[in-house]
Amino acid sequence: MEVVLEGLQQALWLILRRDPAVVEITLRTLQVSGTATLISLLLGVPLGTALALGRFPGRRLVVSLVNTGMGLPPVVVGLFVALMLWRSGPLGRLGLIYTPLAMVIAQAVIAAPIVAGVSLAAIQQLDPRLHLQLLGLGASRGQLVLVLWWEARRSLLAAAMAGFGGAISEVGASMMVGGNIVGQTRVLTTATVLETSKGNFDLAMALGLILLLLAYLVTLAMTWLQQSGRTG
């Protein structure tokens, strides 16, 4: 319990005096996980929508794969992405291993199925008569999708929050493909692991608390959007 209190104290102190190292890794955490979430939305929302609206053979198989993907173990994703990006791997020439971009890729792979799965459920939950009515009114395919997204916007924001949560909280993949390099790929989760292994439990706790605060603030902003304009 002592360590938690010391961690809380140290977290406040680090925030108040804007510790440069902590500010730097906090901003990087936000950049990496934010960009990964954005990519996962660009991939996941259309995929989820296509699966919700489309009728094609093997659809159930794809849906089951997406749903399984919502629980992808980050460490397995990390290993796979690392195998691809290592110099000896097929994409080694790109020189992406141990860069923030490698972490964005890994986190996007983790978050995309979560976004797709929640989007799929969100679109499917809409009243099917809306769909028919829109087509009856002569809406094009594109217009239909835009209206459906607008109608499902609160659930889609929930998808974004779930995706962001998956990205910012994972550590195994970030460690493997990022390498936890100081000044380059160190983020809040990997820094927490490092400080724990160094035995600096209070600092590790402080970093963990800052991570929680960051996740809370981002989710709060999205929740505010989600709940704004709510009627009744």
């Binding site: 901003l27 934010g34 916007r153």
Partner: peptide, 23 residues
């Protein structure tokens, strides 16, 4: 609402652009 949503989505990209100065 639509505009603020767009801003929120663009935020991480902006941050990435801002942060790339730390070479």
């Amino acid at each position: 609402m639509r505009r603020s949503l767009a801003c929120l989505l663009v935020l991480p990209v902006l941050l990435t652009a801002c942060g790339s100065g730390t070479t």
